[in-house]
Write a protein that binds this DNA or RNA. Sequence first.
DNA 1: GCCGTTTTCGGCCCGACTGTTTTCAGTCG
Length: 573
Amino acid sequence: MPVHNNEIADIFETLADLLEIEDANPYRVRAYRNAARTVRSHTRSMSDLVEQKKDLSKIPTIGKDLAKKIKTIVVTGKLPLLEKVRSRTPNILSDIMSVKGFGPKRVKTLYQKLKIQSLDDVRRAARSGKVRKLKGFGKKTEKTLLQRLEHFSTETARTRLITAEKIASPLVNYLKKSKGVKKVVIAGSYRRCKETVGDLDILVTAQKSSNVMKRFIKYEEVDTVISKGSTRSTVILRSGLSVDLRVVPQISYGAALVYFTGSKAHNIALRKIAVKKHLKINEYGVYKNKSRIAGKTEKSVYKTVGLPFIPPELRENHGEFFAAHRDGLPDLVSLDNIRGDLHCHSKASDGRDTIKKMAIAASELGYEYLSINDHSKRITVAHGLNKKRLLEQIKTIDKINAKLSNIVILKSIEVDILEDGSLDLPDSILKELDFTVCAVHHKFDLSRTKQTERILRAMDNPYFNILAHPTGRLINKREPYQIDLEKIMLSAAEQQCFMELNANPDRLDLTDDACMMAKDTGVKVAISTDAHSISGISHMRFGINQARRGWLQAEDIINTRSLKALKKLFRRS
DNA sequence: GCCGTTTTCGGCCCGACTGTTTTCAGTCG
């Protein structure tokens, strides 16, 4: 099995932790962390790039040395340097560093003075009062350490955007009622519309910060107050989600919003550009020498460094600065561009609502079309349709369509891709449909080669149109199955097939990076909700978020097209 | 360890809060 980008990133991150504990050059440490971030979020698999003999040092933050190290990891699965560092500084120290509040210096002291080798050792030392006696530590630090170790796990699941919305919305309303508050906005990865968020970053503008700070920590959902200052406070809510609140004066709103929206990598890059122009950017504004020259709006901040406004979804330092410089930022797709939904279920299989109810709900959203794609017969638990039942459904839809005036129901199916790459229903019935959505629902554990071949073979069927949820992943629940997505996309582009971006907040499959890959490979995307009830149809916005993060424009999305244009796209020649 | 319209050396984003010290190091975002 090829080495995954995440594994390479983990190696670099562990190495960075251990080197930091060893007091290595901080910029060298940073270089490993930057590389870890780059590799983790890179569209392409390093293994593939190595196999294709691509020059990895062309990738930003990856130089000659790191390119060589990536190659070593891909080929051998290991990095000799890490093995060497581990022999003098045990791996466990990297784990302790992921306890909040404990960085390289404290971990180093714990290791050197108390000879700790495991998390249990740390617990024992803290319980017996040995920690508080160390220089730089104290009673309070010891207590905090024990508390944090109690709830500690190295795998901290991130919160899905839809859950974060539900938690954030009442808190925002609560803060808006504080005296003297002008604006309350959620920044951070939430504003960048990442599929999951690690915490909530809320920015408030107010004349006096103390009122809103007081009110914030009194919020009934607050479980623990981590820190409380005059301009910044951090709490953990009972839901487990941590919230940072930052209060700035109105005049700093734009600069603070840029700062608090991130990403960190974007901010660093932006500030570097500013430094070159002899400017300084912080959360209060843009400064030339000592005088403040911008910062009230985000636009003004970008303008001082000669850039147009960059949409939050693009702020990942993934080429947005390069594009902005050349006036090449994409005109991102928006919800308004969507004319219909191409993947929905009805009561006939595992949906909860009737076809007619689904159609009416869609027309209320202003859609021109909605397709019904129930499961095919192999999915017995979902009461999947066989040929006979599908024929009946086609007739039913014809009847409903005859009565509906402002929306057209498209006849379709979510047909299973069987293990050998054949489809679960015969061509004789598939050809009666407007189009098909094809999906893998079983045998997730095939090898990468076999899984890829399975899908490629399915695509050879002339009635194959859209590959549904292409990797099968469920956020925080199920890893994607192993496939060569690029190969599949290249083939889809050539064969006039399409990739689904499943907008279900549990799936969001394609990922943002995969959307970029779709654009690069030239395959068009269908953003579909996979709604199993009328309420699911409103999840389209999550798909739009993801597509925007993937730099997609309306022209890259097939369900921004008119029905006539769409039907033409589905006729493979 | 990376990087370059100050290019092969000498820089590397910037500020807030906490706890332990007594002026600041460590950590975080």
